[in-house]
Design a protein around this nucleic acid. Structure first.
Lengths: 192, 192
DNA sequence: ACTCCTATAGAACGATGTTCCATTACAGTA
DNA sequence: TACTGTAATGGAACATCGTTCTATAGGAGT
């Protein structure tokens, strides 16, 4: 559709933000090569030249999502207990404010998308931010001493599960925010 | 493909078991109208005549899945604590043994599939089986007295999250089975 | 043996991801 | 200013997707 051609350096950013916008606005139904290109004011071919196809776009969004998530949940203050609760709240906030990205990262087995080893490494990096918090909770005597990665997996699973059901509108709790706080409290008490 | 026509009464069962088989074997890539019909030894049109399209098949699988899940986690013995742990283990077992169904029920926002009110009711029925267990745990003094549905939502979210990450091969725990037991223990202690 | 229901095969439509290709706009250089 | 080469564009084309329509014919009940 574009009357004027887009400068090369702008194509990738335009495509990525268009992809996120479509994912947030219309969900996966609208997430097509032609639709993304149209919204980015770019030729469909640009997606192949710059990303090697729609999976390349997904991979780039995955990478950005996990990097954002890592930053969002990283905590390092003196108050380890506060860090734990604050990181837990930040996790859900990230998911709700970036539904499109979260779907790519966790909820959706996309067409044929399999994250590359480098992308999987990025996801592991985000997980490490949580492990670090768990380790400091253990050192402070707040958590029982088990393998930090085991406790982190339990915490991550719980938070992810809550968010995932929430996004599917499967939440029977009286108040969604309060129930999530109850979840974090339950984890804190249960891991002691 | 079928040389002989399939009796009307057999078409629906054949289509449903073929759909489950494809979902388990090949995942969603192979889940197409034509592939299901071929595997069921039935004409593609039969799926429209009997289910009104692929979404009708998905809805029927959803219904069966939640009915199976409800049966799987229903417990009612004298040992309420045992019931809680046993139901938690049964939840994960159901998911791992019925990956195809579980994906339809929770992991996948399918094409345009939205469960009908009746189907949503069935899902709520499975949730009620969990609420009943929580209520008996509260009466026995095992759990703190909050709204049973809130505690049930927390439990369900945690179990679902663990299973979901597991299915995405996102599990950093040293032993997947042990970590799930740790999750159930954490919930039991944390809800007291 | 006849009739009616319906399962079947096949063409067709729009939309999907993807590839190929000719055109041409634009930036850097002479 | 004129030229040249990179690459963004538009469009055709392919297989496959869900879906609809139609004509044919198989099989059960009378």
């Amino acid at each position: 559709m574009p009357n004027n051609r887009t400068p090369s350096l702008l194509i990738a950013p335009e495509v990525l933000s268009a992809a996120v916008a479509i994912l947030d606005d219309e969900g996966l139904d609208g997430f097509t090569v032609r639709a993304i290109a149209k919204r980015a004011n770019v030729a469909p071919m640009a997606i192949y030249n710059h990303f090697g196809g729609v999976n390349g776009v997904i991979e780039e969004l995955w990478n950005r999502g996990f990097e954002m998530l890592r930053v969002a949940i990283t905590r390092h203050s003196g108050d380890v207990e506060g860090d734990f609760l604050s990181a837990g709240l930040a996790y859900r906030r990230f998911a709700l404010e970036n539904r499109g990205l979260y779907r790519i990262m966790f909820l959706q087995t996309f067409r044929n998308f399999e994250p590359s080893p480098a992308s999987a490494q990025l996801a592991a990096g985000a997980f490490q931010a949580l492990v670090a918090i768990v380790e400091r909770c253990q050192e402070a005597g707040l958590f029982v001493h088990s393998r930090p990665s085991d406790a982190a997996q339990v915490i991550w699973a719980s938070c992810h599960g809550y968010v995932a059901l929430d996004m599917h509108s499967v939440n029977f709790a009286s108040d969604a925010d309060d129930a999530y706080l109850m979840l974090l409290e339950t984890l804190r008490r249960g891991l002691r």
